[in-house]
């Protein structure tokens, strides 16, 4: 019985954020299923995906939250940032507006996650070279200025998708090794033991609150 080697020792929580239609769900799908999802519907909510990877001989389970990009959901999706160890911030290289909004996404990420959260910038749809609207160089500069990791990727061809997810994990793992990321901190986004993904911050005490709503003694 060689239990250890097949299990995973860490769980990393990731979030994928960015404007609507930049291909966040397709990136997740490509990463977990190795397939391109054509006609991917808009995400109305927060999709959840998982995959087990290996970093430095350690099995790591990634729990990935793929958020809705629509502006009207922004207030709600903000609550999913908390406790993310990695944030994949995605724009569409063929639509400049999605790039222009990055600073707002970045502000959210910085405000709502902790300082050790690894932020990885992904310029998606790099297979559509002819329709390019954002140059590699300017995005690279933006990433450098803000201390972000960066690749251009394609959820369609799979180019650099694996790399972005894995590199983020490596960076997080490195932070653990360096002691920069405190595993005991409640919001580190890293768990030492497997557990369920779902009970996020949204639903604390809702029973209690439901009760209060009806019986508030002011």
């Amino acid at each position: 019985m060689s239990t250890g080697q097949y299990n995973y020792s860490y769980i990393f929580k990731y979030i994928i954020i960015g404007d609507m239609g930049v291909g966040k769900s397709c990136l997740l799908h490509q990463f977990t299923e190795k397939k391109f999802m054509a006609d991917c519907p808009h995400t109305i909510g927060v999709e959840f995906g998982t995959r087990i990877i290996e970093v430095a001989g350690q099995k790591i389970k990634l729990q990935i939250w793929d958020t809705a990009g629509q502006e009207r959901f922004r207030a709600v999706t903000r609550s999913y940032y908390r406790g993310a160890a990695g944030a994949l911030m995605v724009y569409d290289i063929t639509r400049r507006s999605t790039y222009n909004h990055l600073s707002s996404w970045l502000t959210d990420t910085r405000t709502l996650t902790n300082p050790s959260t690894v932020i990885f910038l992904i310029g998606n749809k790099c297979d559509l070279e002819a329709q390019r609207d954002v140059t590699y160089e300017e995005a690279k500069q933006f990433a450098d200025e803000n201390g972000l990791m960066f690749v251009e990727a394609s959820a369609k061809t799979g180019q650099n998708v694996e790399e972005a997810f894995l590199e983020t994990a490596r960076k997080i793992y490195q932070s653990i090794q360096d002691g920069r990321l405190d595993l005991n901190a409640a919001e580190s986004g890293v768990q030492h033991k497997p557990s369920q993904p779902g009970r996020n911050t949204l639903n604390n005490d809702q029973q209690q609150n439901r009760y209060n709503k009806d019986n508030c003694a002011c």
């Binding site: 109305i44 909510g45 927060v46 999709e47 959840f48 809705a68 959901f73 709600v76 999913y80 369920q196 993904p197 779902g198 009970r199 996020n200 949204l202 639903n203």
Partner: peptide, 10 residues
Amino acid sequence: LHLSGGKDMF
């Protein structure tokens, strides 16, 4: 709308 152990839908 939360699914225990899974995704959330708005």
